[in-house]
């Protein structure tokens, strides 16, 4: 039996990462599996004129809704199959689930009492927990980037690093926004279920605003209110990085981090 103390638990950040380790591994396996399936289908679609015809025969509304223009090229395929919904969704679900757990979960399991009795400020607790959330989302996003960018060409899927990175970073920041929102609501209410429900609902509404604004004319002036638009709605796979959209996402995450810290600091942790 080792008689020494483990080395990976010296801070709230490290302990959070230790606790999420197994779950994160599961999500990684899921994302790898999803990406490999998507990639393995691509060679049969790539350069297939029949597919292109089929897609072009779709009504325009459907094509816009599911983002299936130039479906047979690498960026077009990724846009409609990976980044139109699934990849950002997977990252966001992970972030929303864990974000609420980091604040409200610690409270519901009553470990918050002993944690906050240590000489660590509440601000620091939240900041470190958020750093853990951002790290975990980053790990998942990086896995996606490596799979699509490095493994992709093996399946004849070629996409430039800049557009791919722009889409990945957009997805990651979208997920992190809602993970942070979930964390903030959890910090303010102490309820995991409430935090997750509200965050997921807002994420869906924003997705719909951005997507439907391509079809519904009156929604178009409002699409800037949607984080989805700033993350993926502006089509990073065609246009690459856009500093303006990126800044909106970063600013939004920053505001939510401040909100989470403020709510957590003001809370009464009664039993």
């Amino acid at each position: 039996m080792p008689r020494s103390a483990p080395r990976n638990l010296h801070s709230v950040f490290e302990r959070s990462m230790r606790e999420v380790r197994r779950s994160l591994l599961g999500w990684l396996v899921g994302i790898v599996g999803f990406s490999l399936i998507m990639l393995s289908i691509f060679p049969t679609i790539h350069g297939n004129a029949g597919f292109a015809q089929l897609i072009n025969a779709y009504p325009e509304a459907l094509r816009k809704l599911f983002d299936v223009s130039d479906y047979t090229t690498g960026p077009g395929y990724l846009r409609s199959e990976v980044f139109s919904f699934m990849a950002p969704l997977l990252l966001a679900i992970f972030a929303i689930l864990w974000g609420a757990d980091l604040t409200a979960g610690e409270e519901e399991r009553r470990t918050i009492d002993t944690l906050l009795a240590t000489p660590v400020s509440r601000q620091r607790v939240v900041a470190e927990k958020w750093l853990a959330l951002a790290t975990a989302v980053g790990v998942l996003a990086l896995a996606l980037e490596v799979l699509l960018g490095v493994v992709g060409p093996l399946f004849k899927l070629h996409v430039g690093w800049a557009p791919l990175s722009a889409a990945i970073i957009g997805s990651g920041l979208f997920a992190l926004s809602f993970g942070t929102l979930s964390m903030a609501i959890g910090a303010g209410t102490g309820s995991r279920g409430f935090a997750r429900g509200v965050s997921a609902a807002v994420a869906v509404v924003m997705y719909l605003i951005s997507t439907l604004s391509q079809l519904v004319e009156w929604l178009k002036p409002w699409r800037w209110t949607s984080l989805w638009y700033h993350a993926l709605g502006f089509d990073p796979l065609s246009h690459g990085f856009n500093v303006g959209h990126l800044l909106v996402l970063v600013a939004c995450v920053a505001v939510l981090v401040v909100a989470a810290i403020t709510l957590f600091t003001r809370r009464d942790f009664s039993n």
């Binding site: 103390a5 010296h10 801070s11 302990r15 606790e19 918050i112 009492d113 002993t114």
Partner: peptide, 27 residues
């Protein structure tokens, strides 16, 4: 201060060694 709450919650996925290491560092 040293504190033990009336309704003690512990990190269920960790071992006591890990938990105590964590709190020793935080304190």
């Amino acid at each position: 201060i040293g504190y033990i709450p009336g309704d003690l919650g512990l990190y269920e996925r960790l071992t006591p060694r890990e938990i105590l290491t964590h709190f020793a560092y935080l304190r």
